[in-house]
């Protein structure tokens, strides 16, 4: 009962990728924060790269493959989300965006989200607030105030500077978990009665 499920969506392309590295540090920090409050956690990490073909197929056919459907359902069912995109051409990557394009646009409503991005230089750090934040605002998610951006230097000389940002953001995500997520009505279980459709 007292377990929280955190879905992690990371869109790095290489192995190992700095996006995955950041994703792992963020999810570990969130798990620590939760366990500090006596709450256990399950981390479900999704490498978007593994589903690149299925995502394209979903755009073309209009439905997800069985495997992708499972992944989308994992994200929808999670208590909170951590997302990490590499910065491509001053924004999130196309592959990252495709994942959220095929996800139902109500799937993230009311869900706390920790925004994170990686890039080659600190000069792209506003990608968090100028690209990711509007996307998740549109999806009616609840992005926490602190986003985490990691440039190449954050993995070397500035590593000590990254740590407190991760801790801060993880704390905010766990605090946001107390939000009640709105319950969604399933139109197949509770269809709108036809008289209402006729009279609307």
């Amino acid at each position: 009962m007292n377990e929280r499920v955190i879905a992690v969506v990371t869109a790095g392309l290489t192995t190992p990728s700095s996006s995955r590295l950041l994703a792992d540090q963020l999810s570990a920090a969130v798990a620590d924060e939760l366990s500090g409050r006596g709450i256990s956690s399950r981390i479900e990490t999704i490498e978007v790269r593994d589903h690149a073909h299925d995502l394209t197929n979903n755009l073309l056919t209009g439905f997800p493959s069985a495997e992708l459907r499972e992944v989308l359902e994992t994200v929808e069912a999670a208590d909170a989300l951590i997302v990490v995109s590499p910065t491509f051409s001053a924004s999130y990557s196309g592959l990252f965006k495709m994942f959220f394009d095929v996800l139902d646009d109500q799937a993230l409503a009311g869900k706390p989200v920790l925004l994170a991005a990686t890039g080659g230089t600190e000069r792209h750090s506003l990608v968090l607030d100028f690209a990711l934040r509007p996307l998740f605002a549109y999806l009616k998610a609840l992005p926490v105030p602190t986003g985490v951006y990691a440039a190449s230097t954050d993995w070397g000389p500035n590593a000590a500077g990254l740590r407190p940002r991760i801790t801060q953001a993880a704390g905010e995500l766990v605090a946001a978990l107390h939000h009640e997520t709105p319950t969604k009505s399933d139109p197949f279980t509770n269809p709108t009665p036809f008289e209402d459709l006729l009279n609307s």
Binding site: T56, N57, L60, T61, F63, S65, A66
Partner: peptide, 15 residues
């Protein structure tokens, strides 16, 4: 049209 250039015939017949 519609599903071409997407999933393989094998994937589509399965799904």
């Amino acid at each position: 049209p519609v599903y071409g250039h997407g999933p393989s015939l094998e994937d589509f017949t399965r799904e």
